[in-house]
Design a protein around this nucleic acid. Structure first.
Lengths: 155, 155
DNA sequence: TATTGTTATACTCTATAACTATA
DNA sequence: TATAGTTATAGAGTATAACAATA
């Protein structure tokens, strides 16, 4: 809890929660201007990196349940950003890939992510930003946080 | 979005989102062992600091809507942690205060918060932890983040 | 018999808006 | 007329579990 009633720097965890929520909210806002939810963005990013994934693996990577992926891909497919192809190796599953539009949108998403990063770190000097990155990376590594999702915002 | 496919430290915002979510989730887990939601915890903390608040002000401070406060206080009152007293100055409103049990639980909550903090920062040296705190505090100040809630976890 | 994807259902959480009592 | 608190309703988001097709 926020120990703001007690003295000293007990507040780091609380600050981390708050700033993480702020970063997630701002990112969600930016993806929204691209017509995407954070979850959509997570899918595009993952398929950009690993084309041909099936829905089950995608669910695992996103930390989501398979049934949730259905609606997500349905929506992206309807918008012409992702396509399903029946796997010839295992015809139960689809191979998922970005369309041309999907790849363009992913590129726009990456530009947006860089702007988001720049805005967030604007109050810091480049040296401070680097320092912050290193400290956060150390915490992430110690907690094996290399998942592909923005937990609270659902991506 | 996570620019893990692009090189370099663009990842700070993403790390911040992830670690913030982790910190919130762990805190929620700890409060749960005390029989509290993060929102409950936020109320106890606020009433501990400012006894006599009414529900409307509490709603403002928590960034919640007044109707949400009703169920929150109902629950805490039923458990004997908070009491409502009609304000003699304005009999439309209640003055909210912690009971003795509420104060004891708040004390336990603060111990829990310190454990949470210690666990989270365990991978860092004390110097690194101090550095991280300062950098986060700088970001929080630049974004006027001194609200009393854990946004995503609802407290 | 197990697994991929799908659907239907139910559940949780929360905001919105209408209502009451006081002011 | 406005405000504090309450209630009822509805909506978003998501998980669970049953189901069809394929392995």
């Amino acid at each position: 809890m926020d120990p703001s009633t007690t003295a000293g720097p007990h507040r780091t965890a609380f600050l981390l929660s708050q700033l993480g929520a702020l970063a997630s909210a701002r990112f969600a806002e930016r993806t929204r201007t691209l017509g995407l939810t954070p979850a959509d963005a997570g899918v595009l990013r993952l398929l950009g990196r690993t084309p041909g994934l099936n829905q089950r693996v995608l669910a695992d990577r996103l930390g989501a349940v398979p049934s949730r992926i259905v609606a997500l891909i349905d929506s992206l497919e309807t918008r012409g950003l992702v396509e399903r192809t029946r796997s010839s190796a295992d015809r139960r599953s689809y191979e998922l890939r970005l369309t041309g539009s999907g790849q363009e949108l992913l590129a726009a998403l990456r530009r947006t992510a860089r702007e988001h990063e720049a805005q967030l770190l604007d109050p810091l000097t480049p040296e401070q930003a680097q320092l912050l990155h290193d400290l956060l990376a150390r915490l992430a590594a110690a907690n094996s946080l290399d998942r592909d999702l923005h937990q609270n915002t659902g991506s």
